[in-house]
Design a protein around this nucleic acid. Structure first.
Lengths: 346, 346
DNA sequence: CTGAAAGCGCTAACAG
DNA sequence: CTGTTAGCGCTTTCAG
């Protein structure tokens, strides 16, 4: 479809105000109520009249006013998505999943980012509440997000989150399992000295636990470093350096995310160690970084689009059934094997 | 400030509806009109009454309904930002700049992404027009964006854009100059065989022109490849490979963006060439990739936050003065020297 | 500064 | 299916 096929404005008279539902009704020769019914896809409208209305709408270039309908119906048909940071690529995928179910159902989704919201000094949910969203998807780290208990809007938590609460709907990836996959992959390649680069935060913790489970299951010894630090590239670099110093025999490194893995690569390169010939590296998140031909990093994919889609379904259910039982969904991740892992040299 | 300091809902009675302007007026003992005035920061309100109203607002946890005010005032105090792709990091910066001027002025900004919008098959501007935005910032490639001529909403074009039109407000980075900076940097390092990895699209074209100017100014010979291809990592890799095959003497490569530079790095590595010892590489956009310690790529920064801020100012001006003269602003970029460039080995 | 009154464009309920 | 009738919560006159 070409852009020009879409009406931006039909009436060419410059002074003409935006057409209202009255104009449509007049032109179609029906009542205003009928137009409203057609707009909301009511089933009890005859095909002929529905078509007449639709024609009038097209000819006039009519667009219903969201403001008016929100005010009258006391609902906005819009949901808010709260994320940590627009720079975090997982949200794009999640948003795609979200919209794949919300768009067809006629919902509007708007996004707010804690990072940016913080600059304005407002409560990040303020905008959402002022615009009267019908539901909320919280896809931000628990410590950073506003408290959810007193929220009187239906919401679901998506992505990483402490699950113990049991008080909210949650859709997330099973990161413990993801980390286990990483370890199992390395074990299968014959590695026995597998270190883990960790950091603070809920995600890092889950991945650390998965690492420990995998290591235990294989009867190996755990090496964890960076546990209390950040999960940045720099942290990965420093942790990697420390690791090589104290445990020079390591043949595989599993980093808490792709960014840290990048840091680890820098540390390895600095020590003259090759990847994957001398040391295998596994990341997490399957970001564009990992996919890149230059880095070609083995990583874990969380299927974020599915998380988004499931979160949307859950939210819709919660909106129609505010009192139903809470739902907690954990999705299984996958390992994407690439060129940064190879059989153990030992 | 702690999250808990922000009122999410003050009245604890569960049945209580959201407070309206009437409730505020009653509690403050003033007229509804006065409340409306205070809300919009009118100057002719006595300090005492203003305070009384503010107190009532706080105590009630009152939030004005955007829908109602939009309907009554026929303006939404919101502006729409249209971008190409949420994955393109430049928009985050631009959004930050935008909001730094729009937030304090009480404007709301909502973002739509062509990539995602395309999935739903709707006109990407539909949402904006339906919600009746007061202004639009178009930060998308011209070929991908909807036609702007018949748009009857004030708008400004931000970022890369053909400037010849002269018909719209434009705020963008001077990419010709940016590319020249890159070449000058390499020339200063003694390089004489400087190749350029290009691609299709407006940005790539501007950068290519800048490259040519720089090369001419230095009296060198131009090597351009990939001119009609994409600007992806893969394209960079392929172009890099071709380059090394046909012009093995090259000592410096200037890529049209950081992603292509990454591809070029892969090609160099494959040929056993070291960066920067054998071949220097310069990217463009100064993305997180370039900044990373592992890649440590010399790149050009476009100051995207400034572009966003200027675009906001321009739009605000256009909204208050729809007929004023069009403004075209070109911001100067900077070169960020890092470890991927070094003196020429020759 | 106040109070009253009209109306923004739409939904929803009701009697025809 | 139609037409009428009320508002939704707020802004905006306008005369006090």
């Amino acid at each position: 479809m070409k852009w020009d096929d879409w009406p931006v404005k039909a009436s060419t008279d410059p002074g003409s105000a935006r057409p209202t539902i009255y104009d449509v009704a007049n032109r179609a020769g029906v009542s205003k109520s009928l137009v409203s019914l057609v707009l909301r896809g009511s089933p009890n409208v005859s095909g002929a009249r529905r078509k007449a209305v639709q024609t009038a709408i097209d000819e006039l270039g009519y667009r219903p006013s969201r403001a008016a309908s929100a005010l009258a119906a006391n609902k906005t048909r819009s949901i808010g998505l709260l994320i940590d940071d627009f720079n975090n690529p997982w949200f794009v995928e999640a948003l795609r999943g979200l919209r794949s179910v919300l768009d067809p159902a006629g919902w509007n989704v708007t996004v707010a980012d804690l990072q940016l919201e913080a600059l304005s000094g407002r409560n990040p949910l303020d905008g959402f509440l002022a615009m009267h969203v019908d539901g909320l998807i919280i896809a931000a780290e628990p410590h950073a997000a506003p408290p959810l208990r007193k929220l009187d809007v239906p919401f679901v938590v998506a992505g990483v989150r402490e699950l113990d609460a049991g008080t909210a709907d949650v859709v997330a990836s099973d990161e413990v399992q993801g980390a286990q996959l990483a370890v199992e992959h390395l074990v299968q390649l014959g590695h026995t000295r597998i270190a883990h680069l960790s950091g603070q935060g809920g995600s890092a913790k889950a991945r650390r636990n998965g690492y420990l489970r995998g290591i235990e299951a294989a009867g190996l010894q755990a090496f964890i470093t960076g546990e209390s630090g950040e999960t940045t590239e720099e942290a990965g670099y420093l942790a990697g350096r420390g690791l090589l110093e104290h445990h020079p025999g390591v043949t595989a490194v599993f980093a808490a995310n792709d960014t840290m893995a990048l840091g680890a690569l820098a540390a390895l390169k600095e020590q003259g160690l090759r990847t994957p010939e001398d040391v295998s590296v596994v990341g997490y998140d399957n970001t564009a970084l990992a996919e890149s031909r230059y880095l070609n990093l083995t990583s874990i994919d969380s299927h974020n689009a599915s998380i988004g889609a499931e979160a949307a379904h859950t939210l819709l259910g919660r909106i129609t059934e505010p009192k139903g039982p809470r739902r907690q969904l954990l999705l299984a991740p996958s390992l994407i094997a690439r060129g940064s892992t190879a059989p153990s040299p030992a």
